[in-house]
Design a protein around this nucleic acid. Structure first.
Lengths: 396, 396
DNA sequence: CCTATCGTTGAATCTGGTC
DNA sequence: TGACCAGATTCAACGATAG
């Protein structure tokens, strides 16, 4: 079996281009010592299992794998405005059964196990369609799970038909090769990145869009391109400078681009020519992360928004409680879902405030009041004071 | 095999207690129709698998299960043949203990599958130690996963050693009994609860602490008591009033307390006397919500259907009236039979909306607009507002 | 140049009743 | 069981265009 190494174009060639790119102007940032016996900083073209078999055992420091999710989609899906949703229907995501998917998974995970150094670690990412199978198989193969990480998307696609909860996250699993392994975890770097608080297992990051999203002929080059901010955190947390990172499902090369920026070696496996081409161009141009990408890496410390319903389900205000305005002109009953009922009319705290006053708008938090039982005087307090207390209670 | 029903104490008994509880003073608010052939609103004392075997097939609307997941951590673990399993030291033992855990899981999940009604659904909760095995087994048994939900803890325990990411979440899986099942999802109630945004798959809720955390002799009564807010959302989202909710790992009865409050029947399985005692006391004190508070915002799907023709024959819209789309690109004439005419073409409000836009489908109620005479500004309103008024008018 | 509005789009297991 | 059709259903971010 032949390994075809598709090298990224040489910097010297790029410098002759008529328009100087920033990559051509800037000096190379890292000067890493070479790695012997490994085809580093290349894309290996071909089936990932075969490509991995061509590499020597115990040679890789970290593996990041974004395998097919095995989505099992029904027919076409339309948005409420009638437009068509461009779904992931590529051949590479089609498997006949869980058994077929499991066999495929076991094969590439076996190679991953062999390739990892004893103290190396692996990351896999998936959704509920496949992540449970990945996790089970990791455990059965002797990997030792260190964390499951939730990527909470700030801007997920909604559930257009209102049939389920909005699927607003993906799950990553981080595992060592054994229970006793001395894996790399850059605790200090993570804490710094997170405003001096321990980095948690839930990461709030936007999906990959805008200028970061790679395009070919005006359409997305890859259906499931991951954001660089996600890989940045993964690579920074669990590798050291000069380490070798392997991505068996390289796609458009997010892992390679981030590894290059952070001074790590990378190896990618990819079958599709079109992805390889895009990835090589991208990595060649890889620069220090741009402003917007850096910004998303910092934690967001803004106070969380509190839906009125949270007060109800957390028991701060019981369904059935009576709210009034400050002058007790109107009464409203709190209902189980956090809506208010005024006579036959129902709606949100803001909507009902607007309605009873026949106003253009209304801030329900300050308009509606409740009677505090602990208060001897029959004073009314705006429900906003409950929100303040709730915020204090849930504060980290 | 005997089923021991440990009933919650009767209200009349409670009334004789020296200290009157709130539950004793208030009249019972719900009057749920009885459920025949099921020991509802009781704790079944004993092994959960045996208890579940005593219940009839296809009798349960929703199952919430918080199974133990410390089995592989070196506690006393017995193989099915009774022999002792040594503490987990290597991958083989680890695999061995997973096999035991899997067998246990398969047994109670089989019973859960049998007990669920065809359109019922199941919730399981766990951490990375066991959730992947639960998810895989659910899929292998034919359950159809609807969502995985992340309970994002606002106040998790820090990782004291700084060796990993702070484990700040737990994972829930929500699954139907089959792909085609018509499961219950109260979309509108969830949207209302979340300030008019779709409820997402990541839920931010505090852990159970403070006054809610049940104590015995000054220490926590149960090591993993779940917050009521979590169960509140689960029960409100995926059951209807009067449904039967089963919790095979009842513990201190959070599921029962919330079910009672929300007007659902509950059944709990629990082995430990101390938990049963605490749970019964707690549920006895839980206050059911009254009818009006229990009501939630209804989706249009649940509202009675209004044929467009009804608006015409009731005089809300005269034959000959002119409808347009929002941007006045197309005009349609209302005809006496409730059909629309656009030029020579005629059809339903939906059909004509579809046709003029050359779209795949169209909701005529929101597409077609009329001009309100009472409105001084020449604003167009969707004919859906007429339907809303009609619905209010015919409501008694 | 700034702001408002409109159109587009993203790993999605995405309707239900009747004939 | 499949075809038909009434009708319910979306959030955040980005880019282009208009004012």
């Amino acid at each position: 079996m032949m390994v075809t190494a598709v090298k990224t174009r040489k910097r010297t060639l790029k410098a002759k281009a008529p328009v100087k790119t920033r990559a051509a102007i800037l000096p190379p940032v890292h000067d890493l010592p070479p790695v012997h016996g490994l085809p580093v900083n290349q894309i290996l073209k071909g089936d990932c299992i075969e490509m991995m078999r061509s590499l020597p055992s115990a040679s890789i420091d970290m593996i990041f794998a974004d395998p097919p999710y095995n989505l099992q989609l029904g027919g076409n899906l339309a948005r409420p405005d009638g437009s068509h949703v461009d779904a992931v229907t590529d051949a590479w995501d089609q498997f006949d059964s869980f058994a077929v998917y499991d066999r495929f998974t076991r094969e590439w995970l076996s190679e991953a196990y062999r390739l990892l150094k004893p103290n190396g670690s692996i990351w896999v990412i998936g959704s509920y369609h496949n992540i449970f199978r990945l996790g089970t198989m990791l455990q059965d193969m002797g990997f030792w799970i260190l964390n499951d990480i939730i990527w909470r998307k700030t801007n997920p696609m909604p559930n257009f038909k209102g049939t389920r909860f909005t699927n607003a996250h993906e799950t990553l699993i981080w595992a060592a090769k054994s229970e006793k392994a001395k894996y790399t975890f850059n605790y200090r770097a993570m804490k710094t990145l997170n405003d001096e608080l321990q980095m948690r297992s839930d990461w709030v990051l936007p999906i990959c869009s805008g200028k970061e999203r790679l395009k070919r002929n005006g359409t997305k080059a890859h259906p499931t391109q991951k954001p660089e901010s996600l890989l940045y955190r993964v690579v920074l947390a669990t590798t050291n400078k000069g380490d070798v990172v392997l991505d068996p499902f390289f796609g458009t090369g997010t892992t390679g681009a981030v590894a290059k920026r952070l001074g790590r070696h990378w190896i990618g496996c990819e079958r599709e020519d079109s992805y390889i081409e895009v990835a090589n161009e991208r990595i060649e141009l890889a620069l220090p992360l741009d402003e917007s990408a850096l910004k998303t890496m910092q934690s967001k410390r803004a106070a969380p928004k509190v839906p009125f319903g949270s007060l109800v389900e957390s028991g701060w205000l019981a369904p059935g409680a009576v709210l009034t305005d400050k002058k007790r002109r109107w009464q409203a009953i709190v209902r189980a879902d956090g809506s208010l009922a005024v006579g036959q009319d129902t709606g949100s705290i803001h909507g009902m405030g607007t309605k009873v006053q026949n106003a253009a708008s209304c801030n329900g938090w300050t308009f509606w009041h409740y009677q505090d039982k602990d208060d001897a005087k029959n004073d009314l307090k705006p429900i906003d004071t409950l929100r303040q207390r709730y915020l204090l209670a849930i504060e980290d």
